[in-house]
Design a protein around this nucleic acid. Sequence first.
DNA 1: AGTTTCATATGG
DNA 2: CTCGCCATATGAAACT
Length: 552
Amino acid sequence: MLIAAVPGEGGSGRLLPLDDGGRPTGPAVTAPSLAAAVAAHEAASRPRWVWPSTLAIYPGLLAAGTRVERCHDVELTEALLLGSAGSWGAPRSVAASLARLRGTVVPPDPPPVAASPPGGGQGTLFAAPASAPAVTLDDLVTVYADQRARMAAVPSHPGRFRLLVAAESAGALVAAEMGAAGLPWRADVHDALLRELLGPPSAVGGPPARLVTLAAEIAAAFGVRYLHPESPGELLKAFHRAGVDVPNTRSWTLQQVDHPAVRPLLAYKELFRIWTAHGWAWRDAWVRDGRFRAEYVPGGVVSGRWASRGGGALQIPKVVRRAVIADPGWRLVVADAAQLEPRVLAAVSGDDRLAAAARAGDLYAALANDAFDGDRAKAKVALLGAMYGQTGGAAIPALAALRSHYPTAFDYVENAARTGEGGGLVRSWLGRTCPPSSVSLDVTGYDGGDAPDSGRSRARGRFTRNFVIQATAAEWALALLATLRTSLAGTAAELVLFQHDEVLVHCPAEQADDVIAAVHAAGARATQALFGDTEVRFPMEAVAVDCYAEAK
DNA sequence: AGTTTCATATGG
DNA sequence: CTCGCCATATGAAACT
């Protein structure tokens, strides 16, 4: 059962039931409250909702207390289909899709709305961007029918592509729910942590006490009255005057330098980072009512990983994770997929010998015993070097050993690299297509027309080499997330963070063991969904803790 | 003065 | 040119 839905004015909406082929089975209905109408259908038949954009519609439903089980997100699907056809970056709105279908002028997508801190602006729950014209049910259903036809006609493995569309749509539901739930965040613990590291905050918003002290120590070490330790230019000059010439002022570089300013400077850089990126200003902007609420963007990264807007939700430094604490009587289940990318390589390449190593809990150790004289570190750099396209350093001899022992896996990433170097496109396991080189010009600098052996061509090769792995890993993680969401539905447990290969669930303490079991089951189901009866194992490490910092 | 790029940090 | 992939966010510096 399918129901098409579009939002209208003031929280209203229009609904139209569809048969399994996407054809209307009855008259369209106008509902004064879209949230109420959706809730009623959900209770009655749990349909798959066909709507223009989960991110635009679902937060409003959630605010009204309405959850849905399944959806088909037309805009996300359009992006996948456009990529599959090699037209990257084309507008993906329903209006644009319809215009392409009819051969009329394709309107541009409205620009993304910048995330605003929770207290910082007016509520945007139901406020559509002013430039987005209302979508009619007819248009939505027309585009949906066309998408079904195109999904059936993708270049290869339409069954896998359907799974990709379902996973992408389910991910969008999770992203909205996670944004609504928020990550438990104790502002008082955060404040105590900041005071412990930085000293008391300055009354006027200037640097806290410990940064002031360190800055004075640095200046004294250079024999000057004052300098700005956060200014690379000033630092380079100061080191030069002291007879030390460094190429840059990165921590890793300065660690090699013997000078009295280095020690306080390294401390300053670390603390300055915390103060500016996750200090009191960040907390005041992003933490409300015990929750850090970020905005997640499913499919926001070309590889299919999520991006986030505002608050840096996917870059929470390890030290400040001490402020992520479960509510009283609740626990946080922290779960992550161990060695996900090398296991993906084993599965997609069909390399029997690597797959045999990937049966082990520690893939690198198995690899070391198999082909690297027990040297685990060497095995690891070899495998990572092969997946990232490393060209120098200690990985080179290790790569030769990898090639001779696992030729099938090695050839898989080599072929992806050569395709990219030649200006070609590669796809993930489920059929996500990498952007053409002209789109990633900003990243790789390669426009597809350079000499095959140019630096830009090789950069493109590294990109496509890694894409086939990273994008497939993202798909596996998305499948896990969708499965886990389903098994937690109807319980008190909430998904509160998803970070590429890591999931956090906030749940009543007595439910924690069940959640851990559900995580393991979801991993097994994701593996089965993508790879069938593969020999490769994808183990999840899951623990229940009170505080995020206790995990790993 | 406002906008873009650079340098450096964080995360996977 | 510390590496080789994918990101976001900050302040400084450069640019319009």
